[in-house]
Design a protein around this nucleic acid. Structure first.
Length: 407
DNA sequence: TCTGGGGTCCTAGGACCC
DNA sequence: TCTGGGGTCCTAGGACCC
């Protein structure tokens, strides 16, 4: 049976949501109407464009480029900071509205959802439902969305990306040659800046070119990725809308430091703060980790990482920090200026299905108890109320814990 | 005051085993 | 007694997404 899928995509999400919030607070200007962006903090060396208004886009400003470059392209550009707490609220508001149409919703990102409407609707009604959703979001929540209407997720996603903002597009099978094949191959989902030049060298310039390329040839050139791009270019995608709450497979935090560090003790302090953050999130999921991964970025933007298995699955700050320090000492070459430090845990298992270790001793139980006491204090008095990290002021480096990713 | 942060998945190569 | 080969597990790095 054919699926009926909607893809909902908030137009310029961070910027629109900031605009709505500002208006609610009495702002006289709507930053959607002027050249404006949401940007990172340049003084913290994270000065990139996170979202842009249509007017900013007209200046040629791209997401993820530096604010510095954006200002050159558009003198008089207004820059506003991001606020993930607010974004999470608006994202939830949208989700709750969509729940009135189906509970088969996959939250693909903070500003994108897939809806599986198959069992609720006939094809001719789907477009009308999309219109109703679009209208209600605008009226009740104050921002606009693009909606893609199709028979699978890939085509719905491609459709929602056509023309913006505040548009509804269909992309049924018979519309593929007209609506999708003329587009440059770079527009196809999962084709990024490394693959596109390779395709250009093969004279594959449009999605249609790709669709008409021999599948075996693409597999030889690109492996699994080759098969996928051939299928996508032909509108083939059998994946399901994944509406069940998924447990994460890994949890990580990283931080670009305000200044480079060349001293391993200081890297360790940052690592401890990151470990506290990561393990706190891990424990909130009631999960334990099997591997630890430390990432470093040099001042020259060279990334290295080391990972290692833990002897026992754990969520203990102390155990994971111990492993992280071990990995750091293996990989850090003394004197190299470090710009970014990252820590992530992988191979997560749920507490319930955990292997019972014969070796969990009293010391480990004591550690668990300590972690849980600290977590409760953090829940009650705020994340930064208590920290083991560092003699020096690690909060200077570490941003307020962002919990927008949770639930 | 030039280049974020959080994820998932894939691949190549090495170690090890039979 | 002139370098087999399949399978699994692990790691580092890379590509891509929003």
């Amino acid at each position: 049976m054919e699926k009926q899928i909607l893809h909902i995509d908030v137009n310029n999400a961070f910027l629109s949501w900031t605009a709505v919030e500002m208006l609610k607070k009495g702002s006289k200007i709507d930053i959607r109407e002027i050249p404006a962006i949401i940007g990172g903090d340049e003084s913290k060396r994270s000065g990139i464009v996170l979202a842009k208004s249509m007017k900013a886009k007209e200046c040629g400003i791209n997401t993820a480029e530096t604010i510095y470059q954006a200002r050159i392209k558009c003198p008089g550009l207004k820059v506003f900071p991001s606020n993930y707490k607010i974004y999470k609220q608006y994202s939830d508001n949208l989700y709750n509205l969509l729940l009135q149409y189906t509970d088969k919703i996959e939250r693909f990102s903070i500003d994108e959802c897939f809806l599986d409407m198959t069992e609720y609707l006939m094809k001719e009604d789907l477009y009308n439902k999309a219109k109703e959703i679009s209208k209600r979001v605008k009226q009740e929540l104050g921002f606009t969305v693009n909606i893609g209407v199709a028979n699978n997720k890939l085509l719905a996603k491609m459709a929602s990306d056509f023309t913006k903002p505040d548009k509804i597009h269909t992309l049924y099978k018979e519309e593929i040659p007209q609506k999708m094949w003329p587009l440059p191959v770079s527009e196809l989902f999962m084709l990024g800046k490394k693959t596109v030049p390779k395709l250009y060298n093969l004279q594959i310039k449009t999605i249609g070119d790709l669709a008409h390329t021999n599948k075996d040839f693409l597999e030889k050139k690109f492996g699994k990725h080759g098969i996928m791009m051939w299928e996508y270019s032909n509108g083939i995608d059998n994946s399901e809308v994944n509406y069940k709450e998924e447990k994460p497979k890994g949890i990580g935090n990283s931080i670009t430091l305000p200044e480079n560090i060349t001293n391993i003790e200081k890297i360790e302090e940052v690592l401890l703060a990151l470990t506290e953050q990561v393990t706190y999130r891990l424990r909130k999921y009631n999960m334990k980790a099997t591997t630890v991964n430390v990432q470093l970025r040099t001042n020259e933007f060279k990334d290295t990482s080391h990972q290692g298995k833990l002897l026992n699955q754990t969520s203990s700050t102390k155990e994971i920090y111990k492993k992280a320090k071990e990995l750091l000492s293996q990989m850090y070459i003394s004197g190299i200026p470090i710009r970014l430090v990252g820590l992530r845990v992988d191979g997560l298992v749920e507490e319930g299905e955990m292997q019972l270790s014969f070796f969990q001793n009293n010391n480990e139980k004591k550690q668990e108890k300590l972690d849980s006491v600290i977590d409760k204090l953090k829940d009650k008095y705020g994340y930064n109320s208590i920290t083991r990290a560092g003699k020096m002021n690690v909060e200077k480096y570490m941003p307020e814990y962002k919990n927008y990713k949770q639930n």
